[in-house]
Design a protein around this nucleic acid. Sequence first.
DNA 1: CTGAAAGCGCTAACAG
DNA 2: CTGTTAGCGCTTTCAG
Lengths: 339, 339
Amino acid sequence: MSNARITSAEVARRAGVSQSAVSRVFTPGASASQTTIDRVKKAATELGYRPNSLARAMVSGKSRIIGLVVAYLENQFYPEALERLSNSLQEEGYHVLMFMAAQTAGDIDAVVEEILDYQVDGIIAASVALSSELSERCRAAGVPMVLFNRSQDVPTMSAVTSDNFAGGRKVAEFLIAGGHKKIGFCAGWEGASTQRDREAGFLASLKDAGIELHCREVGNFKMEEARAATLRMFASDPPDAIFVANDHMAIAVMDTLRSELGLDVPKDVSVVGYDDVPAAAWPAFNLTTVRQPVNRMVAETVDILLQQIANTSTQPRKIKIDGPLIVRGSARAPEGWRR
Amino acid sequence: MSNARITSAEVARRAGVSQSAVSRVFTPGASASQTTIDRVKKAATELGYRPNSLARAMVSGKSRIIGLVVAYLENQFYPEALERLSNSLQEEGYHVLMFMAAQTAGDIDAVVEEILDYQVDGIIAASVALSSELSERCRAAGVPMVLFNRSQDVPTMSAVTSDNFAGGRKVAEFLIAGGHKKIGFCAGWEGASTQRDREAGFLASLKDAGIELHCREVGNFKMEEARAATLRMFASDPPDAIFVANDHMAIAVMDTLRSELGLDVPKDVSVVGYDDVPAAAWPAFNLTTVRQPVNRMVAETVDILLQQIANTSTQPRKIKIDGPLIVRGSARAPEGWRR
DNA sequence: CTGAAAGCGCTAACAG
DNA sequence: CTGTTAGCGCTTTCAG
């Protein structure tokens, strides 16, 4: 029955102090005599009082809410990232208002507007591209934003990614050293900076070695499309190695190779992915891949964001974190390569 | 530079109307003359005005925020559920404040208190157990809560699950019909109602058939522990079939069976899981499992919650949704079983 | 239909 | 250190 929603005023009355005294006791940058603190805390616990975050946000102008925009949760890379992101933010006293976005850019804009309506202190956009008007809108609203696992050529926008170009190079070098001659590439969604950078690095190293790309198909970061891409690649003159733009697709590629094409990985074809999602380590796949260091990426993201919040004039930063090639068994390894 | 944060008052001035007129135009249950509407909307777009959700929440007492507590994102069942949950809520004009919780109950309580501080209109707890004081606290605060994929014997708490008992029965019947004689069970975390109900249904059908459980090990819903459990099961007198309490563990069980024990699934051992996560359908696993109908579970959850929000005196409900056995290739099927 | 006025619960000057 | 006094931006009576 008791729809208890205690206010600071009620606590004040019971503690025999002013309402602002109560506020001070509960405000981090407080200052009150020990006596006051004791009396207020006592009254507060007796009443079950807790400060109203919304009211606090209104007057202080700080909501301690971070808007998080996410899109592809089916890719195992995201659940992990999401969890760490949310945890880190919680540790810093922030909370996450989550928005699922369809990939379509138009939709994202609407979503970000809604986020802004909640007076969020900052925004993290995971794997989504934003229109430049949008980023402008956030800047105008004084809400810092950082891109996670995606970069954009807007100088005002911070972004944290792994070093996708370098990662792409590593894969090419590994495959070449492994003696592969017909190397194919299964691309992700071409609108994604991650896809572009991985491919660019990959091609750069191929070129350095004087090797030409054997074939290329687009999988759009989707399993079903990756399967179709694989089938197309093997319709004629099949490759002896495939670099797949992310693990999510690489798993589909391996499954297709083995179950539908009756091929052995890595005996008939080598497969290398990108991300090092949990499934890559499962014995069924044992996928050689480039690890995206999620924890470091998350740490940087949170760090940049909080810094921008603390000081709006902080320069935006673009961080690329190097990730190691994790050699497992899905690709023929170079002679004497140590695991 | 322009730290633009337009208020309704500014829009009012420009439109030549009162501040409350502006409010009315932007309030769903409004009522204003077409002239006023037009003038206000015009001024608003010119200024880029959007109502402040926090201020609105303060005065109206409705934040349109739903608190969502989640724990195990590594289990593929959750990303999918989370996505749908968030989407459905967004469609209804609500937004999701997300909280990651460690499994430990104590932690959850603290987390829920924080949620309450944000004046959320309701709470969805996915796969977490709550202390009874906690649920009491929510009731006292007038914040409805519904449990997702977990049930609890508190009569005041709504809960949505699949029919885990019936599901457990289906698995037992299928395995028995398939001619298995030594049937084992790999349990999840024993504190979970899902684990208990699945096992109870499973054992009930085994008993009905006069078959005794061959072996039982606990995997706690974790892959590594499921692997260890599998090893223990096969240390001596191995089973010819294993029902694993969820797909997440079943995948580890299959991997262990094949890679470490050199066994063939389903020739040497049949494996059946529960959930029908995306990976269950991947050719590498091709796992026979009981599907949890996520979309229907989500729909019910949102439905119940919104109903409780609309009318606090609505009776709490416990919903069990029946899920089909999805027969794939990881278990020897009964003669003449049609796929 | 519309404006004026009263708060929602809290923090932040401002005097004492 | 403490109480008083203003609001934060908005919805909602309440008169007109």
